[in-house]
Design a protein around this nucleic acid. Structure first.
Lengths: 70, 70
DNA sequence: GGAAATTTGTTCGTATGTATA
DNA sequence: TTATACATACGAACAAATTTC
């Protein structure tokens, strides 16, 4: 399975299990790059999956957050 | 060779030749951006190289300085 | 006390090139 | 050809620390 899908699955699971509750800030791209060892490109693709699903929203200069409705 | 490595090499050479003696302040990121034409991102990566080498230290709000031991 | 300017720190947005499967 | 993945590079917004007026 592609790395970005793996990351998306992992983050989705963390949202579902409450590690990242609604409106919580996800780790930054830089942090995820460091923690996963993936390239930023790959990390962003993973986040993009959750973005497409409406599970998270992104604020430039601030970070990525779990959607409130969640 | 990557630009940030080029910049790191250049600054290291200026430290070594005494242009920037120990404890001297290096040009600010903004100045280096202007002088080199590189993006801030690239300038910061160049400085990060010297930081990793312990050749400089950075004080937020003040600037980047040549390490005293140098 | 406060406001502004300077400077570094952090974060996301975008684009290009390269390599591999 | 396409998808995946990484590295480099530039841009933009936001944040925090420091100094100066």
């Amino acid at each position: 399975m592609p790395k970005h899908v793996q990351l998306a699955d992992y983050l989705r699971a963390r949202i579902d299990d409450g590690t990242y509750p609604p409106r919580a800030k996800l780790p930054s791209e830089a942090t995820l790059v460091q923690e996963t060892g993936f390239a930023r490109d790959t990390v962003r693709k993973g986040i993009a999956v959750l973005l497409d699903e409406g599970r998270v929203y992104v604020v430039r200069g601030l970070g990525t957050f779990v959607s409130p409705a969640d």
